[in-house]
Amino acid sequence: METQDPAVVEAVKASGESTLEKATAKAKEAFDQFMNVSLNIAVTGNTGSGKSSFVNALRGLNDDDDGAALTGVTETTIEPNMYEHPAMPNVKIWDLPGIGSPNFKANKYLKDVKFKTYDFFIILTSARFTENDIMLAKEIKKLKKNFYFVRSKIDNDISAEKRKQPFDEQRVLDTIKQDCQKNLKTLGKPNVFLISSTDSNKYEFENLLNALFEELPELKQSALLQACPVCSAACLEKKIKMFERMSWAVSLASAGIAVIPVPGLSAACDLAIVVLFLTRCYFAFGLDEKSLTRLSEKVNKPHLKDMAKSKFVIAIREKALTRIQVSAAIATIGTVEYFLSLLPGLGSAAAAGISFATTKYLLTEGLNDLAKTAREIQKEAGLENVFK
């Protein structure tokens, strides 16, 4: 490695490998897993418990958005329905039929919904948990998979209780949780998360996400964190740190490509990786137009939609695909040239082959730009101190 750039040498050492070739292979594998690891989330519960709305909330969608899970006052789910995350097709959320409904009897529910498909189960109710819910939890436990009890529509409960005097929101929440846990006493004292699918910034939506995150394998953790909505400033910071940690893989993969003696390959492939990585950041940080619209409506601040005007946000919004796909197709000549034009003086270097240092610089600039924009929006939304 004596003839290599000192920065590349240092990066190879930091990877724990002895050669650039081995370090690059490790980096490519890490990056591919980071971008493509599958995650299958099952959402089940009583008819009318709000499963479909919860599925939409996890996907960062309103119930009336295109592609949203169908909601209604009757049993709208008659068979397992799979919904891809809008920006991460490797994350799939399954809206399962209500257990005990005429179409799915409790005693054969797990077999009918193909139990082995899912990484974990969310058992949802908008009232009390039933014997069917308890039976389902016991069966899931026998099969060594995780389950989580979620009490939905908490915003409706709070609105109803506000008409009573004296009103104490925390007392109402404590009473609901204690009632749920009492109803589940045969399972010990399981945690119950109180959430509103229409407002993931309130109640225990983020606490639920944190619990899911902590009990998943590391690779699955990254998929959940990339896909979940930005619930607070703390959630955003966790996302930013994750992408910062992964940036080494992008840079090392770039360094490896740069040594391949094929004219034009370095410029195309390096930027394909960088654009893919930064586009994933853009969606994960909630900078896409749908996420910003949803946030602005929640906090009643329409101008939030106009705050995402930084150079990298504009580059991604105007030049990158609206749906992320792991494909070299995103590295069109127009996209490559546009991204290079953001950093004066780097165009000629890229034409000859982007070096590790150039790619790392572009990556760092892009990540910092997107993170700064997302932080400013969260602060303006008044969420910078939520859940800290």
Results as ranks from 00 to 15, higher is better:
Leu224Lys: 02
Phe121Lys: 00
Glu297Phe: 10
Phe120Gly: 02
Lys114Cys: 06
Thr117Trp: 05
Gly256Pro: 00
Phe193Tyr: 13
Met307Lys: 11
Thr293Ala: 12
Val336Trp: 01
Lys241Met: 10
Gln170Lys: 10
Gln165Ile: 12
Val386Glu: 04
Lys311Ala: 09
Cys281His: 03
Ala267Glu: 14
Gly347Ala: 14
Val336Ala: 01
Ser291Arg: 06
Glu79Ser: 10
Ser355Arg: 01
Ala331Asn: 03
Ser159Val: 13
Val150Ala: 09
Thr186Gln: 12
Glu337Tyr: 09
Leu343Ile: 11
Ser38Tyr: 09
Val274Leu: 15
Leu209Trp: 02
Asp63Thr: 05
Thr198Ala: 15
Lys26Asp: 04
Asn81Thr: 07
Gly16Leu: 09
Leu124Thr: 01
Lys111His: 14
Lys182His: 13
Ser18Arg: 11
Ala68Thr: 00
Thr130Asn: 08
Ala42Ser: 05
Ser49Ile: 02
Val43Pro: 04
Thr117Pro: 05
Pro166His: 06
Leu124Asp: 04
Glu79Asp: 10
Ala42Glu: 03
Arg171Thr: 14
Ile154Val: 15
Lys22Thr: 12
Arg171Pro: 05
Lys111Gly: 12
Glu244Lys: 12
Cys228Met: 15
Ala42Arg: 00
Asp119Met: 03
Val12Met: 11
Ala30Thr: 13
Val8Cys: 02
Ile257Phe: 11
Asp64Pro: 08
Ala223Met: 02
Val37Lys: 15
Arg323Ser: 13
Glu297Asn: 10
Gly353Asn: 03
Tyr338Phe: 04
Ser126Lys: 15
Lys202Asp: 01
Leu61Cys: 00
Gly347His: 13
Pro86Glu: 05
Asn368Phe: 12
Lys92Met: 00
Ser251Cys: 08
Ala69Met: 01
Leu58Lys: 09
His85Gln: 01
Glu380Tyr: 10
Phe31Glu: 11
Asp179Tyr: 10
Glu17Cys: 14
Ile314Ala: 13
Ala315Val: 03
Lys13Leu: 14
Tyr338Trp: 03
Gln181Pro: 02
Gly188Ile: 03
Lys164Ile: 07
Ser222Arg: 15
Leu39Pro: 04
Glu21Lys: 12
Leu224Arg: 01
Lys202Tyr: 06
Ser126Tyr: 13
Asp66Tyr: 09
Tyr83Asn: 00
Asp119Ser: 04
Gln378Ile: 13
Ala87His: 12
Ser327Tyr: 08
Ala349Thr: 11
Ala351Lys: 13
Lys309Trp: 06
Ala137Arg: 11
Lys388Gln: 07
Leu173Arg: 03
Glu337Asn: 14
Val43Ala: 01
Cys180Val: 04
Leu367His: 11
Leu362Tyr: 06
Asn40Glu: 06
